[in-house]
Amino acid sequence: MNTIQRALAVGIGAALLQALMLIAFAWPAAHIAPRDLPIAVSGPQAAMVADKLAEHDPDAFDITNPADEAAARAAIENRDVYGAIITGGGAPRVLIASGASPVVAQQLTAIAQQLSGAPDTPVEDVVAADPDDPRGTAFGAMVLPLVMSGIAAGVVLSLLIPAIGGKVIGLFTFGIAGGLLSIVIIQGWMSVVPGPYLTLAAVAGLVSFAVSGTVVGLAAAIGRAGIGIAALTMLLVGNPFSAATSAPELLPQPWGTIGQFLPPGAAASLLRSVAFFDGAAATKPLVVLIIWALAALALLGIGALRGRRVETSPTPVPAADPVPA
């Protein structure tokens, strides 16, 4: 392949990658809608409200019926539902949790207004987003830098640190330092995420380790192609389907669910649980991140074994030239 052919191939490849990135990032955003979104409906008119919601879109909501308002509040605080509609005693009242998803909170408010026919439907934010970030814009924007920096750290460690032991040291150093520094900026300077600093820093560090470790581990196990595979997985699948700015149930399925099993989606869910819900529903995303971190270490182990086999494989000895008679 000559220079012109190579240049054409690179240009076409870059254009295809650009198109793929546009699809990955724009398609989920263009199809935001409730899909089995967990909400609660309570009170004497709960059945009627549930029927009206089902008539509008039978697949939009996964409706539960708590015994009373206190039970509905508990379900919101435990992250079992995103909000509740309380009937009885006049117009329906709405309980929302903008800390779980400002987008869902807005949608539930609009739905309640439609049900009551009044624009001033009573709304209570049971678990509010940070007052400095009421729309969750900064929260949603912080996931991508964590992913991008993790990829960058993984690439640098893969290319510049040859020893597996050195890669592991670099990963742990990046995870600890990156987690501590990230939350200092997000919480201390920007003041957009509440919650215990050290716990949030540990979460950010685990995310950093999981992302960078995946890059380094795949590169060690299968070669430099692993860098591209890991980076594209995190960027083209993990980030747009992380639901950091919305909710997994608002994204096209099954991608919204798949996104929660990748580090960006698990990171967004775990950070929300720690920051706004005192750790409620934190187990699943925590386990997902730990599995990715352990998988990264396992891949590094495979890379170490691969390197030893190369070192110990016998080098063929060239045949000696025949001695002239």
Rank of each mutant, 00 (worst) to 15 (best):
P162R: 08
P162W: 03
A163I: 05
G166V: 05
K167T: 06
V168R: 11
L171G: 10
F172L: 15
F174I: 08
G175M: 10
G175R: 03
G175H: 07
I176P: 08
G179K: 05
L181A: 13
L181G: 07
L181D: 08
S182E: 11
S182H: 09
S182C: 11
I183F: 09
V184Y: 15
V184I: 12
V184D: 13
Q187V: 03
M190D: 02
V193W: 08
G195C: 14
P196H: 08
Y197V: 07
L198H: 10
L198M: 13
A201E: 13
V203Y: 13
V207I: 12
S208P: 14
S208C: 04
F209P: 01
V211S: 00
S212F: 01
S212L: 09
T214H: 11
T214N: 06
V216N: 03
G217M: 13
G217K: 02
G217Y: 01
L218V: 02
I222T: 06
G223S: 00
G226F: 10
I229L: 13
A230I: 04
A230Q: 00
A231L: 15
L232H: 07
L232T: 08
M234K: 06
L235E: 07
V237R: 04
G238W: 07
F241Y: 13
S246Q: 04
A247R: 03
A247N: 03
P248H: 00
E249M: 10
L251V: 00
L251F: 03
P252K: 02
P254Y: 00
P254F: 00
P254V: 00
W255Y: 15
W255R: 04
G256F: 06
G256N: 05
G256Q: 00
I258P: 14
I258Y: 09
Q260K: 08
Q260D: 10
F261S: 03
P264L: 09
G265F: 08
A266N: 05
A268L: 05
A268N: 04
A268S: 12
L271R: 00
R272I: 05
R272K: 13
S273K: 02
V274C: 13
